[in-house]
Amino acid sequence: MAKNRKGSEKKVDITKIVLIALSVLFVFLMLVMPLISVIVNSLREGFKFYFQSLGTSYVLSALGVTVIATVIAVIVNTFFGLVASWAITKFSFKGKQVLATLIDIPFSISPVVAGLSYVMTFGRLGWARPLINAINNTFGTDIQIVFAIPGVVLATIFVTFPFVSRELIPVLNVEGTDEEEAAALMGAKGFTIFRKITFPHIKWALVYGVILCTARALGEFGAVNALSKTRGETFTLPLEIDALYLAGSADSIVSSFAVSSLLVIIAIVVLIIRNIFEHNAKKE
């Protein structure tokens, strides 16, 4: 008996070691190594060149566009993510399942297609074009969507739409509606109920969703690429990296690595923040 048990323990140990080794090796070779090489390559010409590449007007403009698009996308998606997940979990209505599925479209659709769909909607031949023209004529404005910053923002919103609601829906589902009902019965109004009852419950899921949304918004390439054509004006960091890389000179390639390293660093910071929040959430 004792021998048997030892034998099976040994077996489990081997499985354990093999599985751990495989995952570590895979993660290291496929994910960590290439990212390290980005950082290493970005410093090939020294620190002075590194900071010079980051300081060009193109890169600064791209950084600005990226930040604007990300901030707006995160705010909009947090708001609509809250609204949509609230609607889906707290009410029963026809087409609820369809709505839940539609929210997930950005997960399954290629970002390029998303970008092109906006071109088709707001572009010169798009069906929404007359509407925008009408608005511009009436208010004397000059709103451009396609190949302008609003288009970049829209594309970013599209791609990052599901992150917040996907995090919230499971948590809200588990929570049920009893506590809200109890609070309402005692005379609490909608916003008080949200603030005092619902929000403490979804706080960490919301933070997590916002972080994921931010990370995705910062790095979006495909959808933005379809809607942004002017370097130094509407380019985001990923587009700028691509442009630098495609320019082909030895210097520009190193510069593209330098800008890439910026995104890598931001990503690492986001991951660290996420882990801190996760740790806090667990503690609570």
Partner: peptide
């Protein structure tokens, strides 16, 4: 909330992010 009733739910529906004190004081 205007009917002057107290309601006790089947699974109590206590506010889980509030202390006992805050639950009662809510």
């Amino acid at each position: 909330s205007e009917r002057g009733i107290g309601f006790m739910f089947q699974n109590y529906a206590l506010f889980r992010y509030m202390t006992v004190y805050d639950n009662i004081a809510f």
